[in-house]
Every structure is written in structure tokens, then in C-alpha cells.
């Protein structure tokens, strides 16, 4: 049984390490903050901000010109100055994630990247939801096999009928 628990301990450690890597990548590349939090902190480093493009605020300049619009959260709004390719999903009343930094002089977010799709972060966690039952199922089976061997040994199953 000692080897069995050691083996499963190893599986658990590897699983936790993969989860930690996944979490680190999620926080580094996917997670975003709401506009209210962004305005509280006003970070000058680049962060991802989730909000909706306010109707009537989208102002597309000419080709290659910066695009300006207002992004709104539940109780706050912030102007966005975006310079980059005109993405197809940049529309009024559309929820977007803007990757940019706060410009304290202009009092706006300056961005060069618009992320197309909201992140649905729960999907990453769904990995765990679906893999944990499968792992427990296997763990339980292996444990049962190990215990059955012990029980059968105690019951002397392999002893012949004559000598029993």
C-alpha cells in the first residue's frame, strides 16, 4: 500500500503543479478587471479592462487614424483612445476587453490591443471539474484492487480445497 500512496501522491503533486502553471498563465494573459476597479487604481502599467462600448460614443477616424470611444461598467465610464488595427468586433453596445494603460494627463485609457472575446475564465476550471471525478474513480479502483489482494490473502483463497 505504501507504493500505491506514493504513486498517487506523485500524481497529486504533478496535478497541482499543472494547475499552478495554468493559474499563473490565466492571471498573466487572460484575467481582467472591471472599469470601477480600474478607475480606483488607475494603473500606469498595461492591464485588461472589461466594459461595454457606450452607444453613440464610437468615433472612427480615417484609415490608420486612432479610434476613440467610451467604455462603460456598471457605474462608471472611461474614455478610450485606441491606436491599432480596426477590429471587426469593435461595435457600439458590444462588451470588450481592452488591453491598455491609464494616461493621467489625458484622463483616458490608451490602448493598442482589443481582445475579441470575453474570457469565460470558468472554462479553465472546468478542466478540474471534469478530471477530478475520473481521477477519483481510478484511485478508488486501484485502492480496491490493493485491498482485495490483502483480503484474499487473509482468506487463503489460494489454499487448495483438500488442505483447507
Amino acid at each position: 500500500m505504501k507504493r500505491f500512496y506514493l504513486r498517487w501522491g506523485g500524481v497529486l503533486v504533478i496535478g497541482v503543479i499543472i494547475c499552478l502553471f495554468g493559474l499563473a498563465r490565466y492571471q498573466r494573459e487572460v484575467s481582467h478587471i472591471p472599469i470601477e476597479k480600474f478607475l480606483d487604481e488607475k494603473p500606469t502599467r498595461a492591464v485588461r479592462v472589461l466594459g461595454m462600448v457606450v452607444g453613440g460614443s464610437l468615433n472612427r477616424g480615417g484609415a490608420g487614424e486612432p479610434i476613440q470611444f467610451t467604455l462603460s461598467g456598471t457605474g462608471a465610464q472611461v474614455p478610450v483612445y485606441y491606436q491599432g488595427e480596426d477590429p471587426e468586433n469593435l461595435r457600439e453596445l458590444k462588451k470588450l476587453v481592452i488591453y491598455g494603460r491609464w494616461n493621467p494627463e489625458e484622463q483616458r485609457i490608451e490602448s493598442e490591443t482589443i481582445l475579441g472575446v470575453p474570457n469565460y475564465g470558468f472554462v479553465s476550471w472546468a478542466y478540474l471539474v471534469t478530471l477530478i471525478p475520473m481521477t477519483l474513480f481510478l484511485f478508488n479502483m486501484e485502492r480496491k484492487v490493493a485491498l482485495l489482494y490483502i483480503m484474499i490473502k487473509e482468506e487463503k483463497v489460494y489454499q487448495s480445497e483438500e488442505s483447507a
Binding site: 487572460v30 481582445l115 475579441g116 472575446v117 470575453p118 474570457n119 469565460y120 475564465g121 472554462v123 479553465s124 472546468a126 478542466y127 471534469t130 478530471l131
Partner: peptide, 11 residues
């Protein structure tokens, strides 16, 4: 198109 959602495909 699907963003992060696509990762569920690997399971």
C-alpha cells in the same frame, strides 16, 4: 473566435 473557451476541447 472562441477565445479561452476552446481549451475545453482538450478534454
Amino acid at each position: 473566435y472562441q477565445g479561452e473557451v476552446v481549451r475545453i476541447m482538450y478534454v
